[in-house]
Simulated scan of single mutants.
Amino acid sequence: MAVARLFWVMAIAGALIWAAVIGTLIYATRERRRVQSEHAAGLLILWGGAIIPALLLGLLLGYALWLMPDIRPWSAPGEPAGLRIEVEGEQFWWRVRYHPADGPPVDAANEIRLPVGERVEFTLTSSDVIHSFWIPVLGGKMDMIPGRTNRLTLRAAKTGTYRGPCTEFCGTSHALMAFSVVVMEPDAFRDWLADEARPSPGAGAPGGELFIANGCPACHTVRGTEATGAVGPDLSHVGSRETLAAGIMPVDVEAIASFISKPDAIKPGAQMPAFGMLPEADIAAIAAYLEGLK
């Protein structure tokens, strides 16, 4: 809401200033020419070129700074530590780790869930090239720079599902690098986070043995199994996410099987190797297994 208010105030002020400038220009071109005294010309330059623009810019800047606590809701002195979410940009996906104040870290990927009405601190970095993190409905963007950690605080005002893009060109599949943002009621969020920390009920389902046997644990983690890889996204609850492959596909068996078979065709430049050489039945079984990790 604060971002929207700032936008409309700036837009209206800009329109008024534009109208005043154009009106003055029209008046100057149509008014009968007459000689202005040096004193009058000096006053016009002083007020029209210096004092009035400085006052207008000062007022707009002051209003923006007044809104800043809502746009960047930093913590007040003495406020207890809340949820911190660590997000690392990689070509072309998002590594996400939740740091609750009262529990161990919880890993996820390509989706962020937030409790409504609570301040959340994000720590943002990158492992390869510069990315940029942006949730348009919540606040401005922040760059993710290799070797540096930037901090951003946001507070969601209402529940819902939103979309966040990478806003810094980062390679071939830059346009295919997004994430879902799900804002939940605080109690529902805490229940979800507790479930996320545990293995999925489907971790031991059929198809898991094929996932293990074909080398997937070298890169991916599925809690409750021997898959503990950390190169690629954590797949412990991939079936419960809003999207697949960082915001570009639905989470269903067909889409998962397609990405397993030819990831580089779907997301050019993706680091995951293609497994299209596997029998179709094995690919379908692995896809069904992953879709069942709720």
Rank of each mutant, 00 (worst) to 15 (best):
A2L: 07
V3D: 13
V3W: 11
W8Y: 15
V9W: 10
I12H: 03
L16Y: 08
L16Q: 08
A19L: 15
A20Y: 07
Y27Q: 05
Y27C: 02
Y27G: 03
Y27S: 07
E31M: 11
R34C: 10
L43F: 13
L46N: 05
W47P: 00
G48S: 09
G48A: 10
A64Y: 12
A64R: 14
W66A: 13
M68D: 11
M68Y: 13
D70T: 03
P73W: 10
P77W: 08
E79H: 10
P80D: 08
A81R: 15
R84M: 12
E86P: 00
V87S: 06
R95K: 15
R95D: 13
Y98W: 04
P100K: 04
A101T: 05
P104G: 05
D107M: 01
E111M: 00
L114N: 09
V116L: 02
R119L: 03
T125V: 03
S126G: 01
I130N: 07
V137I: 06
V137D: 02
D143M: 02
M144D: 00
P146M: 06
G147D: 04
G147T: 03
R151V: 14
L152P: 00
A156Y: 11
A157I: 06
T159H: 03
G164Q: 04
P165A: 03
P165H: 02
P165S: 02
T172G: 05
S173Y: 07
M177V: 07
M177E: 14
F179L: 12
S180D: 13
S180P: 06
M184R: 15
D187N: 09
F189V: 01
D191Y: 01
W192C: 04
A194K: 11
A194G: 02
A197I: 01
P201W: 01
P201K: 02
G202D: 03
A203V: 04
G207A: 09
E209V: 02
L210Q: 13
T221W: 00
V222P: 03
V222N: 01
V222Q: 01
G224D: 01
T228V: 06
G229H: 01
G232H: 03
G232T: 02
P233Q: 09
P233Y: 00
D234E: 05
S236P: 06
H237N: 01
A245V: 13
I248R: 06
V251H: 04
E254K: 14
A257L: 11
A257H: 08
S258A: 15
F259S: 05
I260C: 05
I266M: 12
M277L: 13
M277I: 13
P279M: 12
E280S: 12
A284F: 09
A287M: 09
A288P: 04
Y289P: 09
G292N: 09
G292C: 03
